[in-house]
């Protein structure tokens, strides 16, 4: 299973990736939607973990672009927001199994990734 993590907090995605790799999961990271699109044009990933709020192009928009490239790709969303509006958008568009609030518990993240892949 190959995971792509996208968040504008470089230290965050880099460390999550390192922790996933320590658990034997293949993971790469990107700090912007543009960077993520470059990476995915060259390599295939099974799951993309996307931050919803990112500069310029956010996770929801990126998801649409990635899905056009890789229709089978699965998604998990990260959010720092507890906003009702954002929560509603995620629930309506992607259901309750596809998001996690920051800070993330690594075991919960792995469980979520496994769930969307199953």
């Amino acid at each position: 299973m190959r995971i792509l993590l996208v968040d504008d907090e470089e230290e965050l995605v880099e460390t999550i990736c390192e922790r996933l790799r320590l658990r034997g999961i293949e993971a790469e990271w990107a700090t912007s939607s543009e960077d993520a699109l470059k990476k995915t044009s060259a390599q295939q990933f099974d799951v993309a973990v996307l931050d919803i709020k990112m500069p310029r192009v956010g996770g929801l928009e990126l998801k649409k672009s990635l899905q056009m490239l890789w229709p089978d790709m699965k998604f998990v969303f990260l959010t720092g927001y507890g906003s009702e509006r954002d929560f509603k958008v995620i629930m309506e568009e992607f259901g309750q199994d596809n998001y996690l609030f920051k800070p993330v518990d690594i075991d919960e993240l792995i469980a979520k990734i496994t769930l969307v892949c199953s």
Partner: peptide, 28 residues
Amino acid sequence: TASCSHELKNVLAVVNENAGLIEDLLEL
């Protein structure tokens, strides 16, 4: 306050991952 609290969430998220990584490495 929404903007500042979002940024603080990111701070906590990075702290959480680094603390988790230290834990992982010590376990190994």
